[in-house]
């Protein structure tokens, strides 16, 4: 599987990462090589194999419904790039 410039642009957009025009070809080449490495999977016979999402066969533990977190807004927002009146500011959200 080989990726071309437009594939790279599409993926970079999905991942919301700006790509310098001059880098796109290099990414296309590297990503194609990585996909080439991954292609080895195709040969594996997995017809009767269950997918494995987790290494351990454990079940999800459930947390009692209790409020344990207080207000740490000041601390949490001390490192925020742009806040006002307790709100995180971002360029206008258009709906």
């Amino acid at each position: 599987m080989s990726l071309d410039r437009s594939d790279v642009e599409k993926i970079a957009h999905l991942a919301r990462m700006e790509m310098d025009e001059s880098q796109i070809d290099a990414y296309a080449k590297d990503l194609s090589n990585i996909l080439g490495l991954v292609e080895a999977l195709e040969a594996a016979d997995t017809d009767h194999v269950e997918p494995m999402a987790h290494p351990l066969h454990m079940a999800q533990r459930l947390r009692p419904d209790r409020v344990s977190e207080g207000d740490h807004r000041e601390e949490n927002q001390a490192i925020a790039p742009n806040v006002e009146a307790g709100l995180y500011l971002v360029p206008k959200v258009i709906e």
Binding site: V38, L41, E42, A44, T46, V49, E50, P51, M52, A53, P55
Partner: peptide
């Protein structure tokens, strides 16, 4: 890709 890799992960395990 993803689903296939989850299956090969099982084989490796």
């Amino acid at each position: 890709y993803y689903l296939k890799a989850q299956k090969t992960r099982h084989l490796i395990s």
